[in-house]
């Protein structure tokens, strides 16, 4: 059984004149110790998905349908008190800006000890020991001294390490990291990614990495979900998606990267941009930008089809597969 399974999860935003749908029936699963990346551009709903998983949607947003199960336990029905035992303990979160999570007026040690003691009954001394151990685990030099420092005394990369250490405190089963390296410089980014990967390997923690950067994905994730306008459009093993993208959007996204064109040549751009929440088009949401769009793409949302090791929601791929299947049959007949 998979560790986390999400089924038909829909998130809506309450508005006076009709609710807006931010996530349309998202389903996926995550195994123990698996590293999964959720990729998409801004507005794809990837962060909303992350927040919805741990029930941290801000006010007008709410889960309209679907289920989220953590090792068989339904999470969408939990009350605030029951969430306490899950969020931070079994599922930890890492955000883009470390200062969101860190309280600037408390020393990082106090914050870590508080995090431990709010979940388990443990003496201050032991909590401190555990915290220092975790700080050392994320390769912070001189953890005993760092323990008493305040967030503003640390550099950006160091803060993100502290955040990772805090996430690790209660030995979670899943870490959800929302753009953990976007605010950092490239050289630091590389280190933090390495660290995250190592930590997942060491502790058997599953990772959900939310990012817009395929470069980051390629470094760390085993499996990738590509999201567009609130839907998953393609999922599969990372290498497969990067080397052989099936969905026109994934193809476009990867082809638009500068390294995919010869220096000085025009880049392969996708026309237009992601529609805002209020203007999600009917049918396949990508059809206005898709070079292969047909009539049926405009009318009905495509279902998922298996294409090799990935699953793709696209009529073009579906038709192609059907055609291949027909050839195969003809071959058999002959």
């Amino acid at each position: 059984m998979s560790l986390l399974s999400v089924n038909g999860l829909s998130v809506k935003f309450k508005r006076r004149n009709g609710d807006l749908t931010a996530l349309h029936e998202v389903s996926f699963s995550l195994d123990r110790g698996e590293r999964l990346a959720i990729v998409g551009e801004s507005g794809a709903g990837k962060s909303i998905l992350g927040y919805a998983l741990v029930n941290l949607l801000s006010k007008p947003g709410y889960i309209a349908a679907g289920s989220v199960q953590l090792a068989g336990q339904e999470l969408t029905q939990l009350n605030a008190k029951q969430w306490q035992g899950v969020r931070g303990k079994r599922i930890a979160m890492i955000f883009q800006d470390p200062m969101i999570t860190l309280n600037p007026v408390l020393s990082i040690g106090d914050q870590m000890v508080e995090a431990i003691r709010s979940h388990t009954r443990i003496a201050y001394k032991d909590a401190r020991k555990l915290a220092i151990e975790k700080l050392a685990h994320v390769r912070i030099a001189a953890p005993v001294q760092r323990f008493d420092q305040y967030p503003h005394e640390l550099s950006g990369g160091m803060r993100q390490r502290v955040i990772i250490a805090i996430a690790l405190l209660l030995n979670p089963e899943i870490i959800i990291a929302d753009e953990p390296t976007t605010a950092l410089d490239v050289t630091i980014q590389a280190e933090i990614l390495q660290l995250l990967k190592q930590i997942c390997l060491d502790n058997g923690v599953a990772l959900i990495l939310i990012t817009h950067d395929f470069g980051v994905v390629s470094r760390i994730a085993e499996r990738t979900l590509v999201m567009y306008a609130g839907r998953i459009v393609e999922q599969g093993p990372t290498l497969e998606i990067i080397n052989d993208p099936q969905h026109p959007y994934t193809q476009g996204l990867l082809n638009a990267l500068p390294q995919m064109a010869l220096p000085g040549q025009r880049l392969n751009q996708i026309q237009g941009s992601m529609p805002p929440l209020s203007e999600h088009p009917g049918g396949c949401a990508f059809h206005p930008r898709c070079p292969y769009a047909q009539d049926k793409c405009r009318e009905k949302v495509p279902g998922f089809v298996y294409s090799g090791v990935s699953t793709v929601a696209c009529y073009v791929v579906e038709d192609m597969l059907a055609e291949f299947a027909q050839y195969d049959e003809e071959d058999l007949d002959v």
Partner: peptide, 11 residues
Amino acid sequence: LDVSVQAQVLN
């Protein structure tokens, strides 16, 4: 900017 839009502006 987003990746797909970056390409447009760069072009």
